[in-house]
Design a protein around this nucleic acid. Structure first.
Lengths: 344, 344
DNA sequence: ATGAAAGCGCTAACAT
DNA sequence: ATGTTAGCGCTTTCAT
C-alpha cells in the first residue's frame, strides 16, 4: 500500500547547470556562459555543453535566473475588461508585439474599479514584472508614480494621466468628439445628445469636450441635452428619459460601444427608427457595426496598433540604453460614415 | 558631469527579510514565519515584526519565494485569439476566478498555429507557471503530455484531446449541431448547409457530426452541401460558390461567429434576404446578435462560466491534497431562436 | 578562456 | 517558540 498523503504524479528529476557542468566536464560558470552567450567560450567546450544540454533535456530555471538578474521578462497589462473588443484589440496588439521578444504578459481586468486596479498594480509589482502597460482608471496616481520611481517602467494606453512620468499611447478624443458632432451638424441636426455614464473615464470626458466645442462653434452650446447621463443598468429608463419632454434630441452620440449597444437595444424595442427618427454615431469601430441594420456610423480608433505601439515603447525602455525620455504617441480617430447617421 | 553610461532613474534600495529581522530584533526565520503564517509566533515578536515591515515599507520578493517554494502562483492561459469574444469571455472567467486566490494569469494567443502553441507551452513551462488552462489546437499532444508529466497540471477548455490525462471543460458540440439542424428541419428546410473552414478544429468537426446526424435521421443525409468549406480569406467567392448550381441551400449553419460574420457581410452585399431567401443559424451567442437585422438565431455556450469552471478545476488540483482524478465538465449548448431562422 | 566561490531573497530543516 | 544554517538554481565577480 502506498502512502496516500504525499502521493504526486511522476515528477521528472530536475536537471540543473551543475548537472550539465558535470556531464560536459566543465564548470557551472561555463555552462552559464554558453547559455547567456555574453562572454566568449572555446568552441570545444561550447560543443560539449550543448551536447550535454541536449542529452539531458536541460531547461534553464527562469525563476532562479530572474532572482539573480532582476529581470523576469514578463510584463503586466491592466485594462478595464478584456471582453470589451476595444480592450481585446489593445491586448492582442501588446501580446503579439512582446511575445516575439520572449516576453510574457500577465493581464488584469479592473472593471473600472480603482480598488481592483490598485490590487493589480501591487500584485504585478510584487511579482516583479519588468514593466507595465495600463489604461488607468485615473484614481491611482500614487501607486503608479511609486511603481515608476521604484524602477518599473510604465506605459499608459488609451488614457493618460497628467504629470505622470510615463510614456503614453492615446487617441485624440477631443477631435473624435468634434468630428462626430460636426458630421451630425452637417446633416442638419441641432439637438444633438451625447450619451455617457456615471463612471468617470477621461477618454469619455474628452470626447464630450470635443463634441460640445463643435456645438458651441455652431452657436448651439446651450442645448439642454448636449450631454446626458446614461444608466447602463437600466437602459430602458435611460432611453425613455432622453425622449421625455418636447425638446428631444434628433441625433445621439454614444460615448463608447457599451453604451451604444445598450441604447440601441432599447431603441429597437421602442421601435424608434434609426436613422429617420434619430441619427446615431458610436465611438469605437467594431467589425460588426458594418453588419448591423442600419450599419453604424462610428469613430474608429486603431486599437490593435495602439497596443503594438505601447509594447514598442515599453520594450524600448527595457532594452539596453533604454529610452531616457518618455515617449507619447497620439493617434487620430477617424469618422466612418455608414447608414445610422444619414436620413433616407 | 554624471556618467551617462549607467544612469538609471532613482532606485529604492531593496529591503529584505534580513533588514526586517534586524529592525525588529528577531531573526529572518521569524520574519518568514509571520509572513507565511504557517507556524505559531509569540505575540510580541509578531507585533515587532509587523511594525518593522510597516515602517520599512517591506514587500516580500515573490521571485525569491518562488525559487524556494517551487510555486509561482501564476498560471498560463493559451487560447486561439483574445479578440474573439468567445475566447475573451473564457479569459474573463478564468481571470476573475483565479485572481481572488492571488493567482495571476499569463495569456498567449495561438491563432490556431500549432507552432505558436508549442512555443507558448514551452515558454510557460520555463517560466514555471503552477498550471495551465488551454484550448488546444490538437497538434501538440506530446508537449501537453510532457508538461503534465513534469508536474504541471493542465485543464483543457472548450476543446478536449482524447487520451490526455487532464481535466476538461467543454460543450456538447454534437448536440449543438444536432439542435441547430433540427430547428431548421422543423422549419421545413431540407437543403441545409453547414459552413466551416479548412482549419482543423475539433469543436467544429463535432458540430458537423451532430448536424449530419440530424439530417440523416430526417432521411436526407446525402444532400451534397450538407457540409462545405468556407474560405475566410475570400468570403465573396465562398458564398457565391455556395449558390452556384441549382441545388443551393435554403438554410445555413455557420460553424462559429467568425465564419458567420464573414458570410453575412457577403450575403448583405449580394442582397440575399435572410431569413426569407435563406435561413441562418450561428454558433456562439454574441450579445450583438440580438441587435442585428435580422436578429440572429444562435447556439449559445456559457463561455464565461466555462472559464470560471476551468479555473476552479485547476485551483482544486493546485490546492492542498489536490484532486487526484481529472474532472470533466460538459455544458449543454442552447438554441436561441431569433429572426434569422424564421420565414416571415 | 575558465573555475571557484559568493550571493540574489527567501523558506525550511534542524537544533535549542 | 526561536535562531542558526543550508540551499533553491542561477549568474557573476574574482582569480588564474
Amino acid at each position: 500500500m502506498t502512502s496516500d498523503k504525499t502521493y504526486r504524479r511522476h515528477i521528472t528529476p530536475t536537471v540543473t547547470v551543475k548537472d550539465i557542468a558535470r556531464l560536459s566536464s566543465t564548470s557551472p560558470s561555463t555552462v552559464s556562459r554558453v547559455l547567456t552567450g555574453a562572454v566568449p567560450v572555446a568552441d570545444d567546450k561550447r560543443e560539449a555543453v550543448l551536447k550535454a544540454i541536449e542529452a539531458a533535456g536541460y531547461r534553464p530555471n527562469l525563476v532562479a535566473r530572474s532572482l539573480k538578474t532582476k529581470s523576469t521578462r514578463s510584463l503586466g497589462l491592466i485594462i478595464n475588461d478584456i471582453l470589451n473588443p476595444f480592450y481585446g484589440a489593445l491586448a492582442r496588439g501588446v501580446e503579439d508585439r512582446v511575445s516575439t521578444d520572449g516576453y510574457t504578459v500577465m493581464f488584469c481586468n479592473t472593471n473600472e474599479s480603482p480598488e481592483r486596479e490598485l490590487r493589480s498594480i501591487s500584485m504585478l509589482r510584487d511579482k516583479a514584472v519588468d514593466g507595465v502597460i495600463m489604461a488607468p482608471t485615473g484614481s491611482n496616481f500614487e501607486a503608479m508614480d511609486s511603481l515608476i520611481k521604484s524602477g518599473t517602467p510604465l506605459i499608459q494606453l488609451d488614457r493618460r494621466m497628467p504629470n505622470l512620468d510615463a510614456g503614453s499611447v492615446t487617441v485624440d478624443n477631443e477631435r473624435g468628439g468634434y468630428i462626430a458632432a460636426q458630421h451630425l451638424l452637417a446633416g442638419g441636426h441641432r439637438r444633438i445628445g451625447f450619451i455617457t455614464y456615471e463612471i468617470h473615464q477621461m477618454t469619455v470626458a474628452q470626447r464630450e469636450v470635443g463634441c460640445k466645442q463643435a456645438l458651441a462653434e455652431a452657436g448651439i452650446g446651450d442645448y439642454p441635452v448636449s450631454s446626458m447621463l446614461f444608466d447602463l443598468s437600466d437602459a430602458t429608463a435611460a432611453v425613455e428619459s432622453l425622449f421625455a419632454g418636447d425638446n428631444a434630441p434628433t441625433a445621439l452620440i454614444a460615448a463608447n460601444n457599451r453604451i451604444a449597444l445598450a441604447a440601441l437595444r432599447v431603441l429597437k424595442q421602442l421601435k424608434v427608427n434609426v436613422p429617420n427618427d434619430l441619427a446615431f454615431v458610436v465611438f469605437d469601430d467594431l467589425e460588426i457595426f458594418e453588419l448591423m441594420h442600419p450599419s453604424l456610423t462610428d469613430i474608429s480608433q486603431p486599437a490593435y496598433e495602439m497596443g503594438c505601439k505601447a509594447a514598442e515603447f515599453l520594450l524600448a525602455q527595457l532594452g539596453p540604453n533604454g529610452d531616457a525620455v518618455s515617449r507619447h504617441q497620439v493617434y487620430l480617430p477617424e469618422l466612418i460614415v455608414r447608414e445610422s447617421s444619414l436620413r433616407n
